[in-house]
């Protein structure tokens, strides 16, 4: 489960940090392990992702998945961000997860979606696993 790639993203996270000013900002925790992730996103004039940073602390799975997600988000419109699914995250990680660890993997996705839906002032729609 701890592939070279996951460990690489864990130890050398891409897009880790914070933005000076962000259009979208959201944060949540996994009550099971206390993992926490914050997403900060800046959009360009076409409502496409210009910059995205994540920060937080937690296990290799939650942190690597969040980092991989930030790369997937580049250049996407907010509507496209809403369409990123848990399947996309599993594809990025490339491993099979036990039900408990699924929560770790999907924490970043959940936080990103909370931010996007809040930005759009829409009711948040999450998959069962992302709740």
């Amino acid at each position: 489960m701890y592939t070279e790639m996951i460990l690489d993203y864990y130890k050398f996270p891409r897009n880790f940090g914070t933005l000076e000013k962000a259009d979208i900002k959201s944060r949540d925790t996994n009550p099971l392990c206390g993992d926490e992730i914050e997403f900060q996103i800046n959009l360009d004039e076409n409502k496409k992702v210009k910059e995205v940073k994540y920060s937080g602390k937690g296990c290799a799975i939650s942190q690597a998945a969040a980092s991989m997600l930030t790369e997937l988000m580049q250049g996407k419109t907010v509507d496209e961000l809403k369409k990123i699914s848990k399947g996309d995250i599993y594809d990025l990680l490339g491993i099979t997860l036990s039900p408990v660890r699924v929560k770790c993997a999907l924490l970043g996705l959940k936080v990103m979606k909370i931010g996007v839906y809040t930005y759009l002032s829409e009711e948040i729609k999450l998959d069962e696993d992302e709740k």
């Binding site: 489960m1 392990c33 206390g34 296990c59 290799a60 799975i61 036990s98 660890r101």
Partner: peptide, 19 residues
């Protein structure tokens, strides 16, 4: 992280608590 550790130990048949 304790959760990563527990997952690795689980593969070895070891049940410990993490959290």
């Amino acid at each position: 992280h304790p959760h990563d550790l527990a997952s690795i130990l689980d593969e070895e048949g070891i049940a410990i608590r993490s959290g």
